[in-house]
Design a protein around this nucleic acid. Sequence first.
DNA 1: TTGTAGGCGTTATCAT
DNA 2: ATGATAACGCCTACAA
Lengths: 382, 382
Amino acid sequence: MCKSFTRRVFLSSGLLRSFNKISGLVVAVARKRVQDAVNNYGFMQLNKSFVSADDVAKRAGVSRSAVSRTFTPGASVSEETRQRVMEAAQALGYHVNQLARGLMRSESGIVCLVVSELDTPYRARLVRALTHELQKAGKISMLINTDRSDRSVDAALRQTLNYRADASILLSGLPDKAITRLCLDSGQRIVLINRDDDIDGPFRINLDDGQAARVAVNAFVRAGCRHLAFANSEVGTPSLMARERGFVAAAAEFGLEVTVTRHGNTVYDSGRTIAQTLFTGRKPPDAVFCVNDLMAFGLMDGARHDFGLRIPEDLCVVGFDDIEQSAWTSYALTTFSQPVDEIVKSSVAWLQREPDNDEIRSVNLHAPLIWRKSIRNKTPWA
Amino acid sequence: MCKSFTRRVFLSSGLLRSFNKISGLVVAVARKRVQDAVNNYGFMQLNKSFVSADDVAKRAGVSRSAVSRTFTPGASVSEETRQRVMEAAQALGYHVNQLARGLMRSESGIVCLVVSELDTPYRARLVRALTHELQKAGKISMLINTDRSDRSVDAALRQTLNYRADASILLSGLPDKAITRLCLDSGQRIVLINRDDDIDGPFRINLDDGQAARVAVNAFVRAGCRHLAFANSEVGTPSLMARERGFVAAAAEFGLEVTVTRHGNTVYDSGRTIAQTLFTGRKPPDAVFCVNDLMAFGLMDGARHDFGLRIPEDLCVVGFDDIEQSAWTSYALTTFSQPVDEIVKSSVAWLQREPDNDEIRSVNLHAPLIWRKSIRNKTPWA
DNA sequence: TTGTAGGCGTTATCAT
DNA sequence: ATGATAACGCCTACAA
């Protein structure tokens, strides 16, 4: 018999079974109710009804265990019973109840994605790729939005603990370090993307920001730029700061100074504001490395519209992320490409390893420079 | 005692309890192993260990039921026991196991978001807002990526059934109608956003596309445009087609013909391609309504760069969605705004209603026109 | 209000 | 290879 969750219409099957032992009459009544419901809703349209392994077992004439084994990859079942079970399952529309399975096994199959500002192009792309890859690996993703710093964030993160998530992937945001610890202690595997926290235990994925910054300086120098500037936000994420430090250091090797500006969030408007600051100053730059494509767009729009500068003739710009908009003709931004595929692949691969092999703990990926039209010399090293 | 899931290090507590009944000696051995593990991992750092309601009950000196009731909103517990339970729970770090709870209750607290092309700005914004609102409502979101039309999509959607999700919100993509039915029959509540499927049962949210199209025509006419065009993709989503039909119909009322073009997906490149077609034709338009902001950007870039057209002097453009980029200076696109907040609020509100009150089944929301600089007359009706 | 008992759907264990 | 049985952690009558 199928089980029904609906409270108003039927007796719950639990109750039904209890009655079963007491009196045949009551059972008959209960059956009638079910029949009525079936008539109301049409054939086999019971509200919120699920088929259990027990049902399948009965129909196939085997034990629950046989059913369980049929749906467990590494188990030993004879081909014949396997066939019969599958057939019965098909007919009844049976699917393993992951809630119950998760209760028994150590893994629930749930991976939780912790994200803030999901509508940022780069984040959205990453989440899209991650969910896809996780699905291919048979995992399901839970999305935790850490936008507001209310307590709702902590609550949500705790939720994933309550659902016994196997792992968490932290893309951004600032979940309390204590909660990260809690997840870790609960046996979750944790992946940190572009967040250089000093906690031990998670798998950390970072880009070689320093090297990228050096490449940017090189490109600018070869284009004949002399007045370098760096456009940063005030967010202060480790990876953002690494780009800044790297740029300043590499410029110093050429004997060049860098005008460093920081403003607001890492978004378009901040770039726009920085353009105002930079080009009204007494030493306007002829090259700007923006910590982010979004800021680069704002800076470019400001330079062009408010100051009539031509890019790349009067001003060279380099960004970071290579989001979709960078390829749009209005910007044609030369920028560093986030190796999204590599990030995703290595994350999921690590999640699938046995927790014992603790060799690798972090990975440093390379972000190649994508040449478009915001720097003068298209081929720097010919 | 805390329960441990790790297989390699400890005996499982289940085993431990069985032994408990057989021999005191074995128990002692098991305890010692646990102690060793504690020493290896540090204090209270057991691997994947969770506290159960039983543990809390023992510590608080009450029954399991009392603990359960304490964490069930509508239950009757005396203030005193409640206090003691909470205290014990705090000390032990107890959290309700939602997996087990979902097994008993009719609701799992899981809402599943079905999305394709998540990195589209509008989609990303919607998902961000949805997750936030759902979290506020105490729900947790599962993300289903329907990008590839492999069977992996169906598999993923089925997964949410297996996790007994309370509801699904379909933003896009083309999940098999049969599976939508399956979800419905399993008692899931379903919300359809901008997908005018003809299935009965789900809650449907749509925009008044026809009216928006009429407003667009009005705006063009008042700007003195005579040669109207409509830029569409070949995707053929109901809402996209509604905009097209509405635009053509409204133009007809003014005795104006519309050049309708459809190309590829609803993205930037398609707009670019359509610009080529439109402006090399023998009757180039002076006004284009793009079904989508992304296509509008492509069209604008094409018109400006490849044909030297000025916007809005030579060409007026209107888009749809009002994504972040529309406000960027390079585009300053006049466009219809997706009422994301209303969409999200009404979705979540409907999900929280009792399934019985079947009054409302669909909602039609208004998309206001946001005036920027891609149409000549800024104030059409003064 | 509280404790007891039984069941939710699954898997792991142990005999056979 | 198969079946019975005992967990997993929780909820909910029911009786006290």
